[in-house]
Every structure is written in structure tokens, then in C-alpha cells.
């Protein structure tokens, strides 16, 4: 564990040496999230509810989705860009380390410049919770959902990156598996067509990030069991993603040298 901390510290030190503008990146990542939430707020200034969800309730959905996506982006500067490792054969160096390659990729890819979106996601969630007057236990649940939601998006991201072992290029696939689903998670799933809801419950399990547990917490359907559902969902997703990763690692071709 202490090794991991030192590796991450090394990554951050490298970014600082390179002169990455932290304030700029943080503002930028906050700006993009703000723009998206702005659209939701604008809609809600003219219409009180979306599918029965008020603005503070929607803020919980939006905030949790933004938090999970930002945690993924904070940890995966390198993993998200994994096709570069495939195209240039840069993954060789990762495999020469006495560590699980996935862990090395994550440690190399920590980027605090993405924290803007994370802080904003947490802020919007907290604003929604405050407006709804949630009890301390409710805040506790939201904290749990932030963790499980982040783990779920991370699992989807790892699985997407792992397909690079077969497909090499994943930049376009990420639109389908990451961007579009995390955007879809900003709204209640009940508004979607059946096939889309089925997709978000299975192959891209984004419904577990926020919609199912928050709906149960607000008393709209499901009880404690539904609120706990994200825990096994995250564990299973991470396991499957790790399995896909190690299957891909075995067929790595090491081209480009």
C-alpha cells in the first residue's frame, strides 16, 4: 500500500514538473460539468419535474453520476488513453514490473486536474441532500453510493480499455460505453425505452450507480435491499472487468517497437 502511495506521489510530482496547469484543468473540468447541470437547471426553471423527480432529487442523480465519472477520470489519465499503449507497444514496460499491470496503469494515471468535476459532483449531491432535508443516515447512504458508483464506472472503464487488447482503438467505443451512459444516468431511467433500460441494467450497469439506489432511498421503489444492491453490482462488475483485463493481457501483441 505504501508503495502505491509513493507511485501515485511520483506521478503527481511528474505532472507538476511538466508544468501541468492544475488550476486551469480543475476549472475546465468544473466548467464542463457546470454546463451540463446548467441545462438541467434551465429545463427545471420552466417545468417543475422530470418524470416526477424534483430539482433537488435530480441533483442527487446528477451529482452522483458526475462524482462517479470524475473519480474514474481522476484515476485513469493513462488507462483512458490505453489505445496509445497498444499502438506504440508502451504496455511492454508495464508488464516488466513486479506488479499487477492494472494497478501500475492506475498509479501512473492519477490526475488531480480532474478534481474540479469531482468537487462539483459532490457539491451538487450535497446541495440536493440539503434541500431535501436528508437525515444523517441519508447522507451516509449517499456516501456509499458515491463509492459504489465510482467503482461501477471504473469497472466499465477498465472493461472498455481492456477491449483495446483486441480492437486496439477504443476512443470511439468510450462514447458508447462511458460518455453516453454517464450522461443518461443524469436523468431517471424510467424515461427511457425498454431496450435502453435493459442495457443500463446489464452490459453497462449504470442504473446501479445512482437511479436504483436513490429511488429506493427516496421511497419510490425498493427498500434497503435495493439500496444495498450497488455493493454486489460493483463487486461483480470489477471482478468481470479484471478478468477481461487479464484475458486481454495474455493476448497482448506488443506491436510498434
Amino acid at each position: 500500500m505504501s508503495v502505491l502511495v509513493r507511485l501515485v506521489a511520483g506521478t503527481l510530482r511528474g505532472q507538476r514538473q511538466y508544468g501541468v496547469d492544475f488550476v486551469g484543468s480543475i476549472v475546465l473540468s468544473a466548467l464542463v460539468t457546470a454546463g451540463e447541470f446548467g441545462v438541467v437547471v434551465i429545463i427545471l426553471t420552466r417545468f417543475p419535474r422530470i418524470a416526477g423527480w424534483s430539482l433537488p432529487q435530480l441533483a442527487l442523480l446528477f451529482g452522483l453520476s458526475a462524482t462517479a465519472t470524475s473519480v474514474y477520470r481522476t484515476l485513469t489519465d493513462e488507462l483512458h488513453d490505453f489505445e496509445r499503449y497498444m499502438v506504440n507497444g508502451e504496455f511492454d514496460a508495464i508488464l516488466l514490473r513486479p506488479w499487477p499491470s492494472l494497478l501500475v496503469m492506475l498509479a501512473r494515471g492519477v490526475n488531480l486536474g480532474k478534481l474540479g468535476g469531482l468537487l462539483e459532483g459532490l457539491g451538487i449531491t450535497a446541495w440536493g441532500a440539503a434541500r431535501l432535508g436528508l437525515a444523517p443516515s441519508g447522507w451516509g447512504w449517499l456516501l456509499l453510493f458515491s463509492v459504489t458508483g465510482s467503482a461501477l464506472v471504473l469497472a466499465i472503464g477498465i472493461a472498455t480499455s481492456a477491449t483495446a487488447f483486441w480492437l486496439e482503438r477504443i476512443g470511439e467505443l468510450q462514447v458508447f460505453t462511458l460518455y453516453a451512459p454517464s450522461f443518461a444516468a443524469e436523468f431517471p431511467q424510467s424515461i427511457y425505452a425498454g431496450w435502453l433500460r435493459a442495457l443500463f441494467l446489464s452490459a453497462i450497469p449504470i442504473a446501479f450507480v445512482n437511479y436504483l439506489p436513490v429511488r429506493a432511498m427516496l421511497g419510490h421503489g425498493g427498500g434497503i435491499a435495493t439500496m444495498l444492491l450497488p455493493v454486489p453490482a460493483a463487486a461483480i462488475s470489477l471482478t468481470l472487468a479484471a478478468l477481461l483485463w487479464s484475458a486481454g493481457e495474455r493476448r497482448y501483441r506488443s506491436t510498434g517497437s
Binding site: S2, R6, G10, A93
Partner: peptide
């Protein structure tokens, strides 16, 4: 690999050695 480096590109040489020492115990 002569063509590539196993060191941390943006860090001083000494930092790479510290990190490798930790990684390889």
C-alpha cells in the same frame, strides 16, 4: 530496451530509483 526508457520521464533520475526501490522492495 534501448529504444524506450523504464524511468519516469518527467522526474529526476534519483526519484525513479526511489520508486523502483520501493516497487521491487
Amino acid at each position: 530496451f534501448g529504444q524506450r526508457t523504464g524511468l519516469w520521464w518527467d522526474l529526476p533520475v534519483c526519484d525513479s530509483f526511489d520508486l523502483l526501490a520501493a516497487m521491487y522492495r
